[in-house]
Computed example of a mutant assay.
Amino acid sequence: MASSGLQLLGFLFSLVGLAATVSATFMVEWKKQTQGKTHRIFDGLWKSCSGYERTTCEPYQSLLKLPNEVQATRAVMLLSVFLSTVALLISTVGMKCTHFMDSKPESKATTAMIGGIMFMVSGLLTIIITSWYVKMIVDTSQNAHHLDNFEFGKAVFVSWAGGLLTMAGGSFLSCRRCSRSESKESISGNHLFPTTNQTSNYV
């Protein structure tokens, strides 16, 4: 029961991490820029917003004209979401609380481990690309004009949280020892307690 609980906890962590990664991918506030005291510009991976008290948003018209960090971050975040989605389906088949592959416990445990590893890779990709994007913003801010203020926005923190949760959930799901514990307990229990169908030699 304990290992099933860990698998379920890992699945929930990974599910929340996937939701946070998807949200961060489509959020606008990846980079904030302030010109003067009132004019604000928010740059996301898909569109840019600008204005004073109220901002208006416009999607990017050309992919080739985007900065390299935006193109790379967009591609890796979409890859991370794709891997997590596939891992979600694989983990559902391999978890003990589902009835898929019940006749093959060894294959079922391997399937859950594969899903967990895919979740861990997905979370690691999210953390790496987000950290690299932040580094690019810091470098841009250091080389910018003193009237322009660059900083990273809320989407960066949401992306980091999504990556960490996805990796944590994947580590629980990929625990091979946890996947086998219940089967070992049942086998050892069968050896300790003999069946009642044995015939007695006493009259």
Score class of each variant (00 low, 15 high):
Ser183Cys: 10
Gly115Thr: 09
Gln198Ala: 11
Val76Trp: 07
Trp30Ser: 07
Val203Pro: 00
Ser179Arg: 15
Tyr52His: 15
Lys37Thr: 03
Thr55Leu: 06
Thr92Ala: 12
Gly17Asp: 00
Ser186Met: 15
Met27Leu: 05
Ser186Tyr: 12
Gly10Cys: 05
Cys57Asp: 07
Val28Asn: 07
Val158Tyr: 12
Arg176Ser: 07
Ala168Thr: 11
Arg180Leu: 08
Ser171Cys: 01
Thr98His: 15
Phe13Thr: 02
Tyr133Arg: 03
Ala20Asp: 14
Val158Leu: 13
Trp132Thr: 04
Arg54Trp: 13
Leu64Asp: 09
Leu64Pro: 06
Ala155His: 00
Val203Asp: 11
Gly163Asp: 08
Thr196Glu: 10
Leu15Trp: 02
Met1Pro: 12
Ala155Pro: 00
Phe26Val: 03
Ala109Ser: 09
Ser131Cys: 04
Val203Thr: 04
Thr85Phe: 01
Pro67Ser: 08
Thr111Leu: 01
Ala19Asn: 13
Leu64Gln: 11
Thr92Phe: 09
Thr166Pro: 03
Ser179Asn: 14
Ala155Gln: 00
Gln142His: 01
Thr56Arg: 01
Phe150Ala: 11
Ser186Asp: 10
Leu8Asp: 14
Lys37Met: 02
Arg74Ser: 08
His191Tyr: 14
Ser122Glu: 02
Phe82Gln: 05
Val28Glu: 14
Asn143Gln: 10
Met113Asn: 04
Lys31Trp: 13
Ala144Lys: 04
Gly123Met: 05
Cys97Tyr: 11
Leu125Ile: 02
Gln35Gly: 05
Thr98Lys: 02
Gln7His: 05
Gly163Met: 06
Ala72Thr: 07
Thr110Glu: 15
Lys31Val: 15
Ala109Pro: 08
Ser107Gln: 15
Glu151Trp: 02
Ser3Leu: 13
Leu12Met: 08
Met113Phe: 01
Val22Ala: 14
Thr140Ala: 01
Ser4Arg: 15
Ser50His: 02
Tyr60Val: 00
Thr21Cys: 07
Gln142Cys: 00
Ser200Gln: 05
Ser141Thr: 04
Pro105Asn: 03
Leu9Thr: 12
Phe119Val: 01
Leu9Phe: 14
Met118Asn: 09
Glu185His: 13
Gly153Phe: 03
Gly10His: 04
Asp43Ala: 10
Thr73Ala: 10
Met77Trp: 09
Ala2Trp: 10
Val93Lys: 03
Gln142Glu: 03
Gly51Val: 03
Asn149Gln: 14
Gln61Phe: 02
Cys57Lys: 00
Ser48Val: 02
Thr92Ile: 09
Leu6Phe: 08
Thr21Phe: 03
Ser84Met: 07
Ile137His: 01
Tyr52Ile: 12
Val28Ile: 11
Ser171Arg: 05
Val121Asn: 09
Asn190Ser: 15
Trp46Tyr: 11
Arg177Asn: 10
Ala168Tyr: 15
Met136Gly: 11
Trp132Ala: 03
Leu165Tyr: 12
Gly116Gln: 09
Thr195Pro: 00
Lys32Asp: 15
Ser186Gly: 08
Gln198Glu: 10
Gly153Val: 10
Ser186Asn: 12
Ser50Thr: 04
Met101Ala: 10
Gly162Arg: 13
Asn143Asp: 09
Ser48Gln: 06
Leu45Trp: 01
Ser179Trp: 07
Val70Pro: 13
Arg180Gln: 14
Ala19Gln: 06
Leu79Tyr: 14
Lys96Trp: 00
Lys108Ala: 15
